[in-house]
Design a protein around this nucleic acid. Sequence first.
DNA 1: TAGATTTCCTAACGTTGTTAACCATGGCGC
DNA 2: GCGCCATGGTTAACAACGTTAGGAAATCTA
Lengths: 206, 206
Amino acid sequence: MSISTRRARERANTHERIIEAALHVLETEGPAALTIRRIAGDVEYSAPVVYQHFANKDALVLELVAHGHRLMLTEVLHAVQEADVDLRMRRIASEYVRFAGEHPHLYQVMNDPAVDTDERRRVVEPAIDSLKELLTTWSAAHDVVLADLDEACEALWGTMHGIASLGHLGNDRARRLAEHTLQAILLGWRTKVFANDQNQQKEMRG
Amino acid sequence: MSISTRRARERANTHERIIEAALHVLETEGPAALTIRRIAGDVEYSAPVVYQHFANKDALVLELVAHGHRLMLTEVLHAVQEADVDLRMRRIASEYVRFAGEHPHLYQVMNDPAVDTDERRRVVEPAIDSLKELLTTWSAAHDVVLADLDEACEALWGTMHGIASLGHLGNDRARRLAEHTLQAILLGWRTKVFANDQNQQKEMRG
DNA sequence: TAGATTTCCTAACGTTGTTAACCATGGCGC
DNA sequence: GCGCCATGGTTAACAACGTTAGGAAATCTA
């Protein structure tokens, strides 16, 4: 049975090569250049071969999206090991928008509403979990009780994405902006916005 | 010369009808259905007449984007007239994500990175200016000096967009989340994150 | 070596944006 | 009123896209 394993190995190999070629085209020339024939040509095959490895183009770009999220998660986590929780969150926010700025086209398809929403959610889940974990240790460290952990997490995630997808403003400014905004939100939470304590809010507002 | 004015009127009329048809298709069936032939068919013309009114498809969708932003701005501003500045900002944030939730496809192309970035910026400018104005009155009302008004503005805008583009989570939850996050940011700003006063931040962190 | 299977390619279909060539209708000068 | 011309419309086509069918060729199996 060594022959079938070799076949499987070769198959897996071209599968990988297709993904790498697609990733390269996407990052260097943008989503418009990401066509089946182009990818096939880059791996020196004809177009239909791609369909032996992916059901359709959507399935292929979904794998690109998954790859992108794995890459982003490992890069971000690797780049920041920091004892202080607040500093860690700040640096993570910074690294997040750095990744978005350094891989604009990849980041774009990673958050393209055109790719199936459920699949996209499934693929982001690990990163979300990681953030959720971090957020719980943060709230514990400051004796802050978040009314809804999921919502708090989505707020942070959405905010970082929003700033990252602003476009203009260079990478450095975007990173600083993300850090500042994150810090402002955390500071706000420590003043118990989520405690729904209207009195306290009124008091501060006046 | 009444004849040429009539011609111009007719011309402007079909121009408008094309836009309306395109908008209708986009909102009811999504961006995938937004094809030249489909739009032309809906106004009972053949495809090439569209090119007598728009240089190409990009120009058409750019007009849709502009229309969308005008619509959003007027709806938001009209829906909220509120004396208290903080409440006004909260309600504006809420109305922003409401609009995004009620016009998902329109909102999607309004923020599609595929449409030219410069043109998109040009089209959003009025809304940005409006927000900037509101933000200055807010900062004045609270004796808060924002280190960089533009950046503060972008932070808010990006945050609202990020939350609005989260997708899942229903409209009501998204609105609440937007309100809470905005409030947290404002609260954070009042604690002078932008003052770059590291000592104060350290003091709060500890 | 003959048959079966796997792998790959060429050719094609339908649809997209876009352009060229043509037709007709209606306003203008004589 | 008649012929001319511009304007507005259509049909037909092109290139490129995603995708599928059918066949050729290489490779394994017996």
